[in-house]
Design a protein around this nucleic acid. Structure first.
Lengths: 146, 146
DNA sequence: GTAATACCTAAACCTAACTTTAGGTCAAGG
DNA sequence: CCTTGACCTAAAGTTAGGTTTAGGTATTAC
């Protein structure tokens, strides 16, 4: 059994965050001795799950929901799977978006590299082909391939 | 020249958002006739830039900074490039993080798929190799490769 | 002539996930 | 005895990027 301060040190989290998680119902089994929180294995495991699911961009209310489903037993396997499938699809589309943004940024870096060399944007502007430079300028590769 | 409502329709943005951008100093050249905003080519171009940089996760204050640098001329090319380089590095590390989260989610989906088939988690738990199941369980591929 | 629109402002509200503050209990150390 | 430090609570504050509201003007439609 650990105090809140010990757990905070173990996980590198502020004490206030742990109290906040508790308030959000993320430690439903948490015990207290004369008002003081006592963190046991259940809570440490819960914290590991929380850290993991937060990395996947899950909101606290969803994490709580997931934990409730875990407590309910095997009948909630499909719900839990559906939650992760939905998260997976979401993350995949976010990754795709970020890759598009990344192409744009690569283009911008290349563009300013040229502009710095030339002292103006005239040549680099002329280099951009008119055919593909719409929104997402992955024009970088095109321009770069010259 | 367009009114705020026309621009809102053109970009599919709420009028309130355009007024908010204006308040944040994103249309420094914006003209008014008797109090009413008149959006010209400069502002439409600014909006295109804004949409583009927002997709790259840039904050409004950084977008404003970028626009100020653009107005200052060629001497700010290095600053602008540095800003994009920093963004690029940031996005790249975010993509790496999300790929790690994605591996975890794939594992979770696979895990619950097995659990649903078995009606319990006993077999699937036993399937997870002890060697690699630490934080980021890309164990999915390992377990799946059996 | 009045009702619906489109525009304007300032200021309050919203969400998420915390953090900070103010005020209080309790045990150990000097 | 009294100060320091760890714990507690409730409530207010923070941040970003808007959105909503309340209140006002001006034009157009019937």
């Amino acid at each position: 059994m650990y105090t809140i301060g010990q757990v905070a040190d173990m996980f590198g989290l502020p004490v206030s965050t742990l109290r906040y998680y508790d308030k959000q119902g993320l430690f439903p089994e948490l015990e207290r001795t004369s008002g003081i929180r006592r963190f046991g294995d259940t809570e440490l495991e819960a914290l590991r799950v929380i850290e993991c699911l937060k990395k996947a961009g899950m909101e606290i209310k969803d994490i709580r929901l997931f934990m409730e489903w875990c407590a309910e037993g095997p009948s909630t396997y499909p719900k839990r799977k559906a939650m992760f499938e939905e998260r997976k699809a979401h993350i995949e589309s976010e990754i795709a978006n970020m890759n598009r943004a990344l192409d744009m940024l690569k283009f911008k870096c290349w563009y300013y590299e040229q502009a710095i060399q030339d002292g103006n944007e005239d040549r680099v502007k002329a280099l951009i082909p008119d055919n593909l430079p719409e929104e997402i300028k992955d024009t970088y590769d095109n321009a770069h391939a010259r």
